[in-house]
Nucleic acid binder design. Sequence first.
DNA 1: GTGGAAAACGAATATTATTCGGGAGGGAAA
DNA 2: TTTCCCTCCCGAATAATATTCGTTTTCCAC
Lengths: 151, 151
Amino acid sequence: MLDEVDVHILDLLQTETRLSNLELSQRVNLSAPATHARVKRLEQEGYIDSYTAILNQEKLGYDLLCTVFMSTSIHQTQELNELEHRLSEMPEVMECYCMTGSFDYMLKTIHRSRKELEAFIRELNQLGVSQLQTSIVLREVKASTVLPLRK
Amino acid sequence: MLDEVDVHILDLLQTETRLSNLELSQRVNLSAPATHARVKRLEQEGYIDSYTAILNQEKLGYDLLCTVFMSTSIHQTQELNELEHRLSEMPEVMECYCMTGSFDYMLKTIHRSRKELEAFIRELNQLGVSQLQTSIVLREVKASTVLPLRK
DNA sequence: GTGGAAAACGAATATTATTCGGGAGGGAAA
DNA sequence: TTTCCCTCCCGAATAATATTCGTTTTCCAC
């Protein structure tokens, strides 16, 4: 179970990840070793999935962010797993969700150019897709990975 | 400009962020100081937006991930900025995009319960929204922050 | 209150990042 | 080709930081 200090640590980790263990310990009013042990415990118990560097999409030439809604004609579990596996392996697919609503899946995909997007959509179509609806992101208003722990 | 080694570093940082600088330097066949200098340069020049800890939504009680499509009746720039600012400030809104298609915005939102989702939608409705369409994520097939640098 | 487990502390150590002086490589000009 | 200069690298030294360890404190259950 998590106490108040654990939540405080998690919240600091997801917003100010670069804090040293010493600074972190000062923020939560604990000694450095005690703080360190807690962080390790939180990692161990699966409260922290991963640490990651968020790269700048624009600077790296990825200017085309899309949402793709798709449905499939597949209904057998085995084949569905296969489909999902293939989707997961595609590097352009950043997120893939199974959804309520009129489509089976929603994808968030990223591309360098219209040409690459077109190639990607063609690739998708060869996967047993019955319907596809692609929209393009005009502007990113907010893109965060932070959970509202402190709300 | 980026050379091959820079791209290699960025790719390692976004997939194996916890690597020590020493390990990182060995992976890219450079000395530790040279690698360190490159990382600092990449941060400086804005190729790395941020470092973050990705928390486990389920373990922390956030079991309700949604996509919300919304349109607005607002057309004046000033008021639109205001609206976007309000959306950005809402902690449940993890992502917000201005889109092509039949809705103006798409949001990715996260909640602890149906009750909180309902309160959130009510809050949205008081912001000058003309249309709302909310879908619920049944299952996360893939959720990544990794750009396909090596594709 | 008392015993026992869990968790904290400070000091010591190990690991890692960071700085620094010097040198190799490569292009431009003579 | 030689020289100069700039850029980038390296290894060694230092500084900062994480991590371990033995001891003490805290906090329940009885």
